[in-house]
Nucleic acid binder design. Sequence first.
DNA 1: GCCAACGTTGGC
DNA 2: GCCAACGTTGGC
Length: 141
Amino acid sequence: MSNKKLFWLVKQEPSKYSWETFLKDGETYWDGVRNYQARNNLQSMKKGDLVFFYHSVTGKEIVGLAKVTREAYPDPTTDDSRWVVVDLKPIKSLAHPVSLEEIKNHKDLQENALIRQSRLSVMPITKKESQVILRLSKTTI
DNA sequence: GCCAACGTTGGC
DNA sequence: GCCAACGTTGGC
């Protein structure tokens, strides 16, 4: 695993866009972000970065891993030039989804933005956190 | 369905 | 530039 790659986490309600739909689509642009902090995170993503996919509200677990295939460009779903999207492509489903409860209960994940800033929909994940999550998910890249 | 957290908007 | 009102998100 290259140590230059950064890890991120994106959040979505499965009723709006589920991991299963994402797998079926094969690739998608991540639209609809209307929050500056989340937008800034999108703009910081580099091609090849790895992105955890979290199901909010229903499921409340990290279900899959994707990668950035195109860096930030203007959101095609709006004329408002403030907003951007990135292209994401699924890599694999996690062998064992990592639930919010597991994250909350793990001592090394207490500082995770998923807990600290529950409303943020695009957030960075530290390398250490990503290793813990991958271990919990019984998934290797 | 409720409510806490928090971002945005608009009046002053 | 402050802050009250309001809207949205997401856990419970």
